[in-house]
Design a protein around this nucleic acid. Structure first.
Lengths: 204, 204
DNA sequence: GTCTATACTCTGATAGAC
DNA sequence: GTCTATCAGAGTATAGAC
């Protein structure tokens, strides 16, 4: 449902992007419930042909997840660089993360929800990459705490994990045809994180 | 790692609770990566014996998820009933949800993270049960909005989904031996939802 | 690069003895 | 209720032709 920028050769011989097709299927059905046969079919190929590109099903998944990390990192870094105001910057980064997860590519979803399909070695690599990405968020939040924008008694790490949880879980319920746009949802999450929802004083 | 209340006959012939063993394995490895052989071994049985109790692997999963809904519902309803103050009630319900998900049973985790393993029919049933549970949260939040405790311009449904997302994702990173207790995490989520994290006025 | 053909393994599931 | 024995099917992966 994502990544619909069709290359010229999309009618037949859609071997253009095995990863995109795999990502979509892994997202829709999960890694274990998707067979190489299905992936091959989506690429107009036969199962055996996939092994020319990837040594195993897991290698394909790993490559996919690397792409996911790259993508979400680029998106958030770009948002980070587009403002100097820490509060506004946070708002933009929240929306960038949501966009990467729900609009740009299925790879980010797979990265976040299918890591249990990885063996020990691959898991270690991907966790490391994910931690690198999250360190970007650590920087954003710690800066805000140091500058006194966020109350100093708030634990930055917990705040990061809780916030990313709220963001990541959006992928399980967001409806592109629903009443609220992804940007509106991002704004609300930002607003809750900043001001909370309690009604102080007058009837707001 | 959970549900360690051993029944007397726990040495051998641990057929006492197939569901508990399955829940633990499904949580640790995922539904598809857990074979009936493994489940049977954990129960000191052989694979074929499981079919006396459940007609299929999926039937076992469904029964497990029903248990998960019952458990988390009971826990949150109990918390709900233990206070009349809406704000305090919310705090207690948040902690109850976390407890059900991370301490009481592996079934709640499986319910939340393995629903894609269900076929269409079973999925419909479980989604319905999950929606019933979530309606409990809808009630909590809508009441707070009506009473003016939560700002009236906040969308109750979005707030519920965002909040439950933050809570559910805790299951992916919580460390029982870590620096923060589950209750402390619950309190922080509650505090963020209520007041936000921004530093208004003095150096708090 | 892709296809053909196939090997090997594992899994969920069944039937009937005990 | 549990075990024994077994099946049919699907899945990943490989080797070699083209």
């Amino acid at each position: 449902m994502v990544n619909r920028q069709m290359t010229p050769a999309s009618k037949l011989g859609d071997q253009g992007d095995v990863l995109s097709n795999a990502a979509r299927l892994f997202r829709e059905k999960g890694f274990e419930r998707t067979s190489l046969k299905e992936i091959a079919e989506a690429c107009n190929m036969l199962p055996g042909s996939l092994y020319y590109r990837y040594n195993s099903k897991e290698a394909l998944l790993v490559e996919l997840m690397r792409r996911g990390v790259d993508l979400v990192t680029a998106e958030v870094e770009s948002a980070y660089a587009s403002s100097d105001d820490p509060v506004e910057r946070l708002r933009l980064c929240i929306k960038a993360h949501l966009r990467a997860l729900l609009v740009d590519s299925d790879a980010v979803y797979v990265l976040l929800f299918e890591w249990r399909a990885l063996g020990p070695e691959a898991r270690e690599e991907i966790i490391e990459l994910r931690d690198q990405y999250e360190s970007l968020w650590a920087e954003i939040l710690e800066t805000m705490i140091e500058q006194g924008v966020i109350r100093k008694n708030v634990d930055g790490r917990l705040l990061r994990l809780i916030g990313l949880g709220a963001l990541n879980w959006v992928a399980t319920w967001f409806d592109p045809n629903g009443a609220h746009s992804l940007d509106a949802i991002g704004d609300l999450i930002w607003q809750i994180a900043m001001d909370g929802v309690i009604n102080k004083g007058g009837q707001a």
